[in-house]
């Protein structure tokens, strides 16, 4: 009798373990499908390591630079584009003296070093939609600016969050199709598939 009882306990326990393991895996998969993957094994969703530390608050909140000053194409084309090294240098370098503003900060020194070597700054992409989605920045920015009267920074933060306050840029919104369609419906934008998928 004691052997069969312990056998039952072992069986019940193993069943419990199996069920909870399967449940855990299913939960992980469903969560990854509906939102973003769970951060395990040191993977933080939406966080990317950049070649230099670029503190947005210093530039946006302290210096008061608008998003579209550096992300220049955002109102003119589909891609917002990341600024080339030359744009950093144009502000940081004091031309008559050849001195650099902000020297002593490792990022600025790295920028100066790259500039002298004539090498580009290899920014890493943070926001990426799947290949079958054709997103254009221009119409979105212009719609909210002209028809809803929002400021550039407010428009950008609709999808990108408050980047101006981020020391390290990361993705805060899921940017799943649900988000796109909800917003399109709210603003009477077309929801024809071929608007984004072609």
């Amino acid at each position: 009798m004691p052997t069969s009882r312990s056998l039952k306990v072992v069986l019940a326990l193993s069943l419990l373990v199996t069920v909870s393991l399967v449940g855990l895996v299913l939960f992980g998969l469903l969560r990854a499908w509906w939102s973003t993957p769970i951060s395990v094994f040191g993977f933080v969703p939406g966080q990317v390591e950049q070649p230099i530390e670029f503190p947005h608050p210093v530039h946006v909140e302290e210096a008061g630079i608008q998003c579209d000053f550096c992300h220049r194409s955002v109102a003119k084309s589909e891609a917002a584009t990341v600024p080339p090294l030359e744009l950093c240098v144009a502000c940081h370098m004091d031309l008559p003296n050849g001195t650099f503003a902000g020297m002593g900060h490792p990022s600025v020194e790295h920028v100066k070093e790259l500039w002298e070597k004539g090498e580009p700054l290899d920014w890493k992409r943070v926001h990426r939609v799947p290949d079958h989605v054709q997103f254009m920045h221009e119409p979105h920015l212009n719609f909210f600016r002209e028809q809803q009267g929002l400021e550039t920074q407010q428009v950008c933060s609709l999808c990108h969050g408050d980047v101006g306050a981020m020391n390290e840029v990361r993705q805060v919104e899921d940017l799943k199709m649900r988000d796109c369609v909800d917003c399109h419906k709210q603003n009477n934008a077309p929801t024809d598939c071929v608007i984004c998928h072609y």
């Binding site: 799947p130 079958h132 024809d192 598939c193 071929v194 998928h197 072609y198």
Partner: peptide
């Protein structure tokens, strides 16, 4: 008037 193919569907 377009006959559209939605690849992701």
């Amino acid at each position: 008037g377009l006959n559209v193919q939605v690849y992701n569907r």
